[in-house]
């Protein structure tokens, strides 16, 4: 079994049932996890910010930094190794905020809204999510069965 780590502004896909794809310390950033149970192909995106218009050059160099460029790339990368859109299950986690949710610091909420909008526009349902609150999350995707597990440092353990 091998573990594939997804960094910040990064995405990884796999079609190997032995793999676990994992990302650590999602604060306001979001992990988008997709899985095709029939092809047993899946992937994970860990994006930072909602809109690539913040920095177009960066978005070209690294589409995984932003939701609007990273999500399409995640899907395409999965299609390339055998996934099909109609079978894909989508789960998201992250988008935490600091306390009081002062408008200025609402990057987490903004990220959650951006993801929902993108999937809504593309007629894709988000099967389940664990978003908001004020703690960091670690997310794992098990390629054998598509199981997605979310943890935090104080022992929270949730299967999405």
């Amino acid at each position: 079994m091998s573990q594939i780590v997804v960094g910040v502004s990064d995405l990884k896909v796999s079609k190997n049932v032995q793999d676990t794809i994992i990302t650590y310390a999602l604060g306001s950033c979001i992990a988008v996890v997709v899985y095709d149970p029939q092809a047993r192909v899946g992937g994970m995106l860990h994006f930072m910010l909602a809109e690539s218009s913040i920095d177009q050059r960066k978005a070209r160099d690294n589409p995984a930094m932003f939701a609007d460029t990273g999500i399409p790339l995640l899907f395409k990368s999965c299609y390339r190794i055998g996934a099909e859109k109609r079978r894909m299950i989508v789960k998201i986690a992250g988008g935490a905020s600091i306390l009081d949710d002062a408008e200025f610091f609402r990057i987490g909420q903004k990220n959650v809204t951006a993801v929902r909008k993108i999937f809504w526009k593309n007629n894709v349902l988000i099967t389940s999510e664990d978003t908001g609150k004020n703690y960091n999350r670690t997310v794992e995707l098990h390629m054998s069965d598509g199981r997605v597990v979310v943890r935090n440092a104080s022992g929270m353990f949730r299967e999405l």
Binding site: V8, A25, G27, S28, I98, A102, E103, N134, Y135
Partner: peptide
């Protein structure tokens, strides 16, 4: 902290001061 650049227990449990 918002970008996950801390591994600490305290994580994002701090006050946001909007006046900044």
């Amino acid at each position: 902290m918002m970008m996950g650049l801390t591994g600490g227990m305290d994580e994002l449990s701090y006050r946001g001061l909007g006046m900044i």
